[in-house]
């Protein structure tokens, strides 16, 4: 009984989840040794989007706040490092620090506006706010390059002997950030803070009656989610050497949502798996047909029809059916 606070809805502490995560990390660590640079690029994208989806999962899966505008933070992080890189700032910590500061500031402002809304209104207001950012990026040619975006971003200087300019060096940097962040998210969702978020998701009124200051937990969660999304965006900007308004688009926001739902909201591993599957599928399907968008649309429909609790939910149901 003492070891028993392992709620089935939260796979964070489950042993199979831990084992799967370690296997995944091990596999990812060996990619540059075994695969060509194309596969390596796909694997890096997988980790970047997994981080993006995990950041959304923090508010959607744990705090119970849906968002159709999470790409605002992702794009903000990307544009921040892009502007710095183009301005000649090549120090990694400066770039990352400014990206984090900018995205968490943005999340701090948006959080004030969105936390009053619920349900469909929450979806719409988050989308509306993200569109404001997108509109600025799309309209302000002098600063953001408008629809041409900002090409020619250089990867930052390395750390000591760790060179980030080469593909392998950068791949391991993405890997390190990804592993560290997922580890931190695991810690976070198990912590008193994370458990309080789950309590709020399950029953906001009751948490208030217990004396928790619900709003401040949700607000901090919004900022953390924005910050992690910003880091993911920065990584993608370095990876691609380019940012454009699409980074801020509702397509990116919705993609993050479907990644979270596909894997299973409210589990640490679910969004990672969801993102891996969709990014992998994208690179496979795009090689065979031009109709990837249609396939992606079909994934949305199939997931919402048949796996609304995601793969984690399907596995749980399967496990219950065969004891």
């Amino acid at each position: 009984m003492i070891d028993g606070n392992d709620a089935a809805a939260d796979g964070a502490r489950s042993k199979p989840g831990m084992r799967l995560l370690l296997i995944l990390l091990l596999a990812l660590a060996t990619v540059p040794l075994a695969a060509d640079s194309y596969v390596q690029g796909v694997a890096a994208r997988m980790m970047i989007f997994a981080l993006f989806a995990s950041s959304l999962n923090l508010i959607l899966g744990y705090a119970g706040l849906a968002s159709l505008g999470h790409a605002a933070y992702f794009g903000m992080g990307a544009y921040a490092v892009a502007k710095l890189s183009l301005a000649g700032v090549s120090n990694l910590w400066w770039q990352l620090g400014v990206a984090c500061a900018a995205t968490s500031a943005l999340a701090a402002v948006f959080g004030l506006l969105v936390l009053r809304a619920k349900g469909a209104y929450l979806l719409m207001i988050t989308l509306a706010l993200a569109q404001v950012v997108w509109g600025i990026a799309y309209g302000w040619r002098a600063f953001t390059g408008a629809d041409d975006g900002l090409p020619g971003i250089h990867r930052p200087e390395g750390i000591l002997l760790w060179d980030l300019s080469g593909d392998v060096g950068f791949y391991y940097f993405v890997f390190a950030v990804f592993a560290a962040m997922i580890w931190a998210i695991r810690r976070l969702v198990d912590s008193p803070f994370g458990r309080v978020l789950v309590g709020i998701r399950e029953n906001e009124r009751r948490m208030g009656a217990l004396g928790y200051h619900v709003w401040s937990y949700q607000y901090v969660a919004c900022i953390l989610a924005g910050l992690i999304a910003g880091v993911a965006g920065a990584l993608l900007a370095w990876q691609n050497g380019f940012v454009g308004p699409s980074y801020l688009s509702v397509n990116y926001s919705a993609t993050a949502l479907i990644m979270v739902i596909l894997g299973g909201a409210g589990t640490v591993l679910g969004p990672v798996i969801g993102a891996f599957l969709i990014v992998a599928l994208e690179s496979i399907v795009s090689g065979m047909t031009e109709r990837w968008v249609m396939v992606l649309g079909a994934i949305y429909v199939l997931v919402t029809l048949f796996a609304p609790d995601g793969l984690a939910g399907v596995l749980r149901r399967r496990a219950r059916a065969t004891p």
Binding site: N5, A7, R195, V198, E202, M207, L210
Partner: peptide, 24 residues
């Protein structure tokens, strides 16, 4: 809290009054 265990629910209730309720 429908999907939390009884113990976890009780711990949340106890923790509400303790200083570590913000620990991450």
């Amino acid at each position: 809290f429908p999907r939390l265990t009884v113990l976890e629910s009780a711990m949340l209730a106890v923790q509400a009054g303790e200083p570590h309720r913000f620990v991450m």
